[in-house]
């Protein structure tokens, strides 16, 4: 093991672990890439570094710069870790209903938190950040939902790592948030082997978004549209909160302690495994379980956790 020059050099090259003991089909292997091993604790470290380095290369970011970003937590945490080390000031627009640990971690890294109403979910945080960025043209708005450095981090990092470690992959199953992981990994894998299926799992409910008054308030990430996401994906499935929690718990049977979104993705992967004859499914553990301990996800009564999970944004 070499000596690393800085923590950012530890981002990426995460381990791929065989969790086929949870596969419902003995002819289908399921492998999970443990992104919680990144130094900031989630897959989002990859895009945080990629977006910051792209902005530095363009000369938009200089020491002392102020950044603003909407985040349900992980992107904010990844950015905050790097910003603290590089001398940038980060403001994160955070919905009020994220788990307490996410807020605490942002504080650890010295990020300033700007609250947006929980009932508006991520849509509300995105709108607030867009408005503040427009009002403060001197602030740097990386905007993960529209930044090509987001899918690029996965096209150049996550995708090649999967192909290197598991060229026999037949299906890639990941969560659809900003769509960066699916676009970057999906495009890379299909270029290597067009037969590989790329499947999206939609996040389970955080806060029930009754704040949405009409459908024109809907939102599709610009990178999904620009990256022809609708053509790239072979399927998209939604997973309920209860299934997410159940599969988050099942993961501990194979020694994986992961966050709730990982349980949702695994639920999708397991359904895929049940519906095919044979193959190798590669999936993603977005983060570790640490930030969700306060939800009681592993230990409390399932009904209680389910109702609590509706009130937090965790994708």
């Amino acid at each position: 093991m070499a000596v690393y020059g800085s923590m950012t050099e530890l981002i990426g090259n995460t381990p791929l672990v065989d969790i086929s003991a949870l596969s419902p089909n003995e002819n289908v292997r399921i492998l999970m890439k443990l992104e919680g091993q990144n130094p900031g604790g989630s897959v989002k470290d990859r895009i945080a570094l990629s977006m910051i380095e792209a902005a530095e290369a363009e000369g938009r970011l200089v020491p002392g710069s102020v950044l603003i970003e909407p985040s349900s937590g992980n992107t904010g945490i990844g950015l905050a870790m790097i910003c603290k080390a590089r001398g940038y000031h980060l403001k994160v627009v955070l919905a009020t209903n994220v788990s307490i640990e996410r807020r605490q971690l942002l504080e650890v890294w010295g990020a300033e938190i700007i609250e947006s109403p929980g009932a508006e979910g991520s849509n509300g945080a995105v709108r607030r950040a867009q408005k503040l960025a427009a009002e403060h043209p001197d602030w740097v708005f990386l905007y993960q939902y529209a930044n090509p450095a987001n899918p690029k981090a996965h096209y150049e990092g996550t995708g090649p790592e999967i192909w290197r470690d598991c060229p026999e992959v037949t299906h890639f199953v990941a969560g659809l948030g900003t769509s960066g992981t699916l676009l970057g990994v999906g495009r890379f894998l299909k270029e290597r082997n067009p037969a590989i299926k790329v499947l999206a799992v939609e996040p389970p409910a955080g806060e029930i978004v009754d704040g949405l008054r009409n459908l024109e308030d809907g939102y599709i990430p610009p990178i999904f549209i620009e990256g022809n996401g609708a053509e790239l994906l072979d399927g998209k499935r939604i997973v309920r909160p209860r299934e997410s929690i159940e599969w988050t718990r099942r993961l501990t049977e194979v020694g994986v302690f992961a966050g709730l979104s990982t349980g949702a993705i695994l639920a999708g992967a397991v359904k895929t495994a049940a519906g095919i004859e044979q193959g190798t499914i590669v999936t993603i553990a977005c983060d570790g379980g640490w930030k969700y301990l306060s939800t009681g996800a592993w230990t409390d009564d399932l009904d209680t956790v389910e109702s609590r999970a509706r009130e937090i944004t965790y994708f």
């Binding site: 349900s72 979910g121 991520s122 945080a125 939902y145 996040p203 389970p204 955080g206 029930i208």
Partner: peptide, 20 residues
Amino acid sequence: ILPAVAGGAVDQSGFPGEAA
């Protein structure tokens, strides 16, 4: 039927068995 929203907040109120 569900509206498309940003990742991190899906309105699942259109699904059966979900709180409305």
